[in-house]
Design a protein around this nucleic acid. Structure first.
Length: 521
RNA sequence: GGCCCCAUCGUCUAGAGGCCCAGGACAAGACCCUUUCAAGGUUUAGACGCGGGUUCGAAUCCCGCUGGGGUCACCA
């Protein structure tokens, strides 16, 4: 049983997606349940619509939770341990807090914000460690009457834990990623329940909820590592069994000469939505993340082509202890490989889904004649050497748009034809000769026919021949074919010409040759 | 600054005392193939942060240093 427990701040970080991925995998490969719990105890930071965004992102990346908040609507909540939204669990936390107060393990604190900053200043002046502890914990040993007096004035207390001071015992625990760890025990009287709304802090909600919801492994970001002693203390005060822990190193990037955690403010690629918008197939993002999590994933992928990544067994103890640098180039490579495994139908389906959301005009073109679109995506696809030129759906129009009439026409209007070093008169000669030629023959026959044309017009039959005596030729066969390519596509780099010819059909072929010819005169 | 974590090619990493003058992938270079491009094939360059131990033997174990990161809230 594992959980993904984000707070609804309107932003899903790529590191969170990594955590959710690891959580879901670990739960599923041990026959457990992966659920989503919303940690909305800080009402100030909450953003409208962010719960929907979280669920949607999880669904987009194929990490739909089994329980908890599982869908946007209509039936949002599933599972036996509801509610899965912390603000709806208030009485539960209060009950646990009362239990602690009754035992003298927690106490009400009426310290104001200004008193707290005052304490901090004093600690700074004395050069002692900051915080609410020992002699600085001004409400630690107040009498019941003093508490009642505040209450009578209508003041609401925060509930703080009574930490052992000055000699907390050393905490030893095992982390499934980091290994055996030893840290000084907590001696700070941390807040359990907040004064303004009596909602719990993360530190308190985590032991309570994860126990009640039967979480047996807590997988979360490494930023929580320093507060593990506090958490363990709360579990012990409450008399609850400890879950397992696994702390994931954050994903970082280079900023000048220093490394830092991917930042929500500075780095667009920190947002999970970035990948969705750019049109990276979800499988590519997930496989990239899997590769960061367990680097032997790529060996597994090579050995098991076509097998869904859900079959891959993730090993927590193989995860890196240090922060990896995010590498967009590597993601692109993986994405290219992923798309290369897709059938033409799949490319059409995924590409269209992306375009409908982010490029509606191109979507309309794709949908106009689905069979034609699929035929286009079928060029150089399948077989042992599938074409690997598409990284993400965002690039689809640039790479394949010219095979559709409207984008082709628009491209010519914008850039015209780029004949390069071939003289216009030669271009005309080539096109005139080629325009009527038959291509309803095998590829080899067609290429031979083209080569014959090329040689007849003074082009070298191949690059090698040309290089031996460049002065004797107008160019080599490649130069000749480039003229055909540009006339047909308006571009200098395209997939295989023979396949293009057959895919776009003789009507378009004729029209395009004719258009190029008129453009010359 | 205190506490904690971490440290192998540019990047992600393999490596659990001899299998390692350190292996793979991405990126870079070269060559081959080739109707352009993208691929594909072959190939080159590229790392154990430093200093001490332990040991017949250390990338691997221990100590110190250095460097990087995280965290020190009534945010999560």
């Amino acid at each position: 049983m594992s959980r993904f427990a984000p707070s609804p701040t309107g932003f899903v970080h790529i590191g969170s997606l990594m955590a959710a991925l690891v959580e879901s995998k670990v739960a599923h490969q041990t026959g457990g349940v992966f659920f989503l719990r919303i940690e909305d105890t800080d009402k100030k930071r909450e953003q409208d619509g962010s719960i929907e965004a979280i669920v949607q992102n999880l669904i987009n990346f194929g990490l739909t939770p089994d329980e908890g908040i599982v869908a946007i609507h209509p039936e949002r909540e599933v599972g036996a341990y509801a509610p899965y939204t912390q603000s709806e669990r208030k009485t539960i936390y209060e009950t646990f807090a009362k239990f602690l107060v009754a035992q003298g393990l927690a106490y009400p604190c009426f310290a104001t914000e200004s008193e707290l900053t005052e304490i901090r200043k004093r600690q700074e002046a004395r050069k002692v460690k900051p915080g609410y502890y020992g002699e600085y914990a001004i409400w630690r040993d107040k009498t019941i009457d003093e508490v009642k007096a505040q209450l009578a004035q209508g003041k609401a207390p925060a509930i703080r834990i009574r930490a052992p001071y000055p000699n907390p015992k050393v905490v030893r625990f095992h982390d499934h990623i980091k290994g055996d760890l030893e840290m000084p025990g907590n001696d700070q009287d941390m807040v359990l329940l907040k004064s303004d709304n009596a909602l719990p802090t993360y530190h308190f909600a985590h032991p309570v909820d994860d126990t009640l919801m039967r979480v047996n492994i807590v997988i979360r970001g490494e930023e929580w590592l320093p507060s593990v002693p506090l958490h363990i203390m709360i579990f012990e005060y409450l008399g609850l069994p400890l879950p397992g822990f696994a702390h994931i190193a954050p994903i970082a990037k280079m900023d000048g000469s220093s490394k830092r955690k991917l930042s929500k403010r500075k780095d667009p690629e920190a947002a999970v939505s970035y990948y969705h918008e750019a049109g990276y197939p979800r499988q590519a993002v997930i496989e990239y993340l899997l590769n960061l999590a367990n680097s032997d994933f790529e060996d597994w992928r090579k050995a098991h082509p076509g097998v869904p990544h859900t079959e891959f067994k993730l090993k927590l103890d193989h995860m890196s202890k240090s922060s990896p640098l995010f590498d967009l180039t590597k993601l692109n490579d993986i994405s290219k490989e992923v798309i290369a495994t897709y059938s033409a139908e799949q490319v059409y389906e995924h590409g269209l889904a992306w375009a409908e959301q982010f490029a509606p005009e191109f979507a309309a073109i794709l949908k106009h004649d689905p069979a034609y679109s699929i035929a286009i995506f079928n060029i150089e696809r399948g077989g042992d050497a599938p074409r690997k030129d598409l990284v993400k759906w965002e690039d689809m129009e640039a790479s394949y748009g010219f095979l559709f009439d409207q984008p082709f026409a628009a491209g010519i209007r914008q850039h015209g034809y780029t004949w390069g070093k071939i003289a216009p008169s030669d271009v005309q000669m080539i096109l005139t000769a080629i325009a009527q030629s038959d291509y309803q023959i095998s590829k080899d026959e067609w290429l031979n026919a083209m080569r014959a044309h090329a040689e007849g017009m003074g082009f070298a039959r191949d690059n090698k021949t040309y290089k031996k005596a460049p002065d004797q030729y107008k160019g080599h066969f490649g130069d000749f074919m480039m003229v055909v390519r540009v006339a047909l596509t308006g571009k200098t780099n395209t997939p295989d010409l023979y396949e293009i010819l057959h895919t776009i059909g003789s009507e378009r072929v004729q029209a395009r040759f004719a258009q190029a010819l008129t453009a010359l005169t």
